[in-house]
């Protein structure tokens, strides 16, 4: 099971949740992993320690994805440590939920900056290296709410829908250089982010899921591995729905 042997992957927002699971899963598949974090240094170091304990290679690199200078430094650090960038997983994301009527400009801006502009900055940042290599895989973690909409998440939904559009454009612009871009749109996955939602919301969501359960981070990680590996070589610009059948 060395689908990513010799490859280097940057996973943004990898200190916990889906990102941490992707980092672990990619390492098991043979990749050298950059565990990016913005605030949670201890958790990121723990993910790195975990990977190393299992015989993998990883480094933790701090960078706020919406800060292009910080991202540039992260890319330089990656090249110095591992010498190539084969896979980028744009996973970093935040929520600032509020009804649109009450949503502050700051809440809107914060979410768009991290969840959408961050994807643009990181993608742009790795493109140079991937173009030189004549190969690369960009995987954007969107969300099913970017497809279906969600009350109380105008900022998050707009950002995630934007990510799906950005994925398609990235795919078109870079296809001639053998760089693919695909998105994953998870539904309700059990993480810190979704634990923060109230029980009522969780119940309502569950009723809309044909498979009758919430997803697990490793189920998203498996799809990300598929998109990062050769198994998906003829696929670009697509969005995989991992939502238990919520949106068809």
């Amino acid at each position: 099971m060395s689908k990513l042997a010799g490859k280097t992957a940057i996973v943004t927002g990898a200190s916990r949740g889906i990102g941490a699971e992707i980092a672990r899963r990619f390492s098991e598949a043979g990749a050298k992993v950059v565990v990016n974090y913005s605030g949670s240094q201890e958790k990121a170091e723990a993910v790195v320690a975990d990977i190393r304990a299992n015989g993998g290679e990883a480094i933790a690199v701090k960078a706020n994805v919406s800060d292009s200078d910080a991202v540039k430094a992260m890319i330089e650090e990656t090249m110095k440590a591992f010498g190539s960038i084969d896979v980028l997983v744009n996973n970093a994301g935040i929520t600032r939920d509020n009804l649109m009527m009450r949503m502050k400009d700051d809440e809107w801006d914060d979410v768009i900056n991290t969840n959408l502009k961050g994807v643009f900055i990181c993608t742009k940042g790795v493109t140079r290296q991937m173009m030189k290599q004549r190969s690369g895989r960009i995987i954007n973690i969107a969300s099913i709410v970017g497809v279906m909409g969600n009350a109380g998440q105008a900022n998050y939904v707009a950002a995630k829908a934007g990510v799906i559009g950005l994925t398609k454009t990235t795919a078109r612009e870079l296809a001639s250089r053998n760089i693919t871009a695909n998105a994953v749109a998870p539904g309700f996955i059990t993480t810190d982010m979704t634990d923060a939602l109230g029980e009522d919301i969780q119940k309502t969501m569950l009723a809309q899921i044909p498979l009758g359960r919430f997803g697990k981070p490793e189920e998203v990680a498996k799809a990300a591995l598929f998109l990062a590996s050769d198994d998906s070589s003829y696929m670009t610009g697509q969005t995989l729905h991992l939502d238990g059948g919520m949106v068809m």
């Binding site: 140079r128 173009m131 030189k132 870079l174 001639s176 250089r177």
Partner: peptide, 9 residues
């Protein structure tokens, strides 16, 4: 246009 970007790189 992409070739030009690469040339500059």
């Amino acid at each position: 246009s992409l070739d030009v970007v690469e040339l500059v790189m």
